[in-house]
Structure formats: C-alpha cells, structure tokens
Simulated scan of single mutants.
Amino acid sequence: MEQLGAIRRLVLNRPSRRNALNAALVDSLTAALTDAEDDPATRAVLITGAGPSFCAGADLRHLLEFSVAGESPVPFLRTVSNLTRRIERSPLPIVAVLHGHAVAGGLEIALACDVVLAEAGTLIGDGHIRNQLVPGAGSAVRMRRKFGDPLGRWLGLTGELLPAERFVRTGWLHEVVESGRGSDAGLRVAETLAAAGNSAQATFKLLLADLDEIPTVEAGLKLELDQFDRHWSAHDIPTELRRFLSRRTTG
C-alpha cells in the first residue's frame, strides 16, 4: 500500500505465487480498499501486482487445503466475489494495471474495476475450465457484458488466454502500454480520475453499477432520476452551479 498524492496504490504482493489469491491476500486487499475509502485525501485507487504477473487466479494449493480439511472452498470464493462487488460499488474510481498474466480470479478483479490498462503481451483470460473449475467471483457474469457475448463465451468455454492487444477492440482496455510502463501509465489515468472526483462522480459510479441490474430502459431512467434527486437533496448543488457560472462570467 502506497499513497501517491490523491492516489492510493494497492499492490498484490505474493510474487512467488504470481499473486495467486488466498484468504490472507483477499482479506488484505479488502481491508486496504476500506482504508482508502475512509481516507478523505484519497480520490482514486490504483491496483497493481508485484513480480511477474498481475494475478494468476485463486491459489490452487489453497483450494486443495479445504478439501484436505473436509471443507468447501465456497466460503473463501464468496470473499473473492464480495471483493469484486466492493470494487464495483466503491465510491472511489479504481484503476487496474495488468501485466504478465491476469487469469481467472485475477481477471475477475480487473473486470470489476472502472478502468483497466495492460502492459504489452499480457495474457488475459478466464482459464477456469483448464483446471475443471467453474468461475466463482464474477467472470461468467461480467465477461460477456464487458467483452461482448461472442468473445466472453469463447474465453469461458475454451479457457484460452489471449494477449492484451486482442482486447483493445472491445473497448474494455483503456490502453496497452509498453512493458514496464504500466504503473506510470496507470498512475496518470488515476490522477485524471482523482482530479474529477466529487460527490457526483461517486453517485454516478454507483448508478452505473445499479443500472447493470436494471432489466428495462424505463426502470433505468427512473433510477437515474431518483439518484439525481437524492444527490441534489444531499449536497448544495445550487452553490456549485452559481460558482461555475460566476467563473464563466468573470473568466
């Protein structure tokens, strides 16, 4: 964890295991996100990975430990799923920078972020079925929405990993940058988001998350207007509008 001005950088730090997810790492990332949200000086979050990869997914050895103990891995996977939902609904904009590999749980974390960058050549995919696994933290839910049905379905049903460049045309990747330049590029993007940060940005992000679950345009439009009303009532928006108009008049 590192504070860079208004940006809180969170680093997945199990490099010897390609940052594979275990309970300690998931709990640590969840707590770090809460800490960032509670810090009024933090306006955006940047998630990166230490070592050769962003995240190779759940630690398979960790999953086997549950079997040896006669337990189900589902409660652990629920914490990963809850983490992705926390990222998706956090009031802070969250940027992920991928490198090396972003597979299975690593992809699921990235899919929940607001903006995603990747270093050239990063291999990205769902990969679960390669190990006779089914997703448990959102890739089946989010891949088709983020990538489009054909590519999302292909990645899920083949387990294939594709280079980052393949995802640029989907619009999901904000940018593919030169190898080794990901953190700098991600920080630049996070700073742009932080500079735009205010209560309206946080409300807009929550609205987008809610709209993904709204089945009809009519219901979505009603929710949008309801959010406008709540935000207008909770904040002194007229003063902000007068300030903006005054700057235009005197500028």
Results as ranks from 00 to 15, higher is better:
A6C: 10
W154Q: 12
E88S: 10
L206P: 06
L206A: 11
E119D: 02
T249W: 14
A20H: 02
A120K: 13
E175Y: 07
D35F: 06
R247K: 15
P150M: 15
D226T: 10
G152L: 01
Q3E: 10
A202W: 08
D149P: 10
S199W: 08
S53D: 06
I7F: 03
W172P: 00
T34Y: 13
G186P: 02
S199Y: 08
G70R: 03
F54P: 00
E213P: 12
A36D: 06
D59Y: 09
R242I: 11
F228C: 12
L221D: 04
A234S: 14
A118Q: 04
D114Y: 01
E175G: 03
A20M: 01
D210C: 13
P52T: 07
A69F: 04
A202S: 14
A36C: 09
L211D: 10
S16A: 05
A194P: 04
P52C: 00
H235N: 09
E71H: 11
V176W: 02
D229V: 13
R247E: 12
E240Q: 15
D184T: 13
L111V: 07
V11E: 02
S72V: 05
A20R: 00
D210K: 11
R89L: 06
L25C: 00
L187A: 10
A20K: 02
A50G: 07
G121D: 04
D236K: 14
V141K: 11
S53Y: 01
R61N: 10
L10T: 05
A200W: 14
G125R: 03
A110W: 07
A102I: 05
H62W: 05
A110V: 15
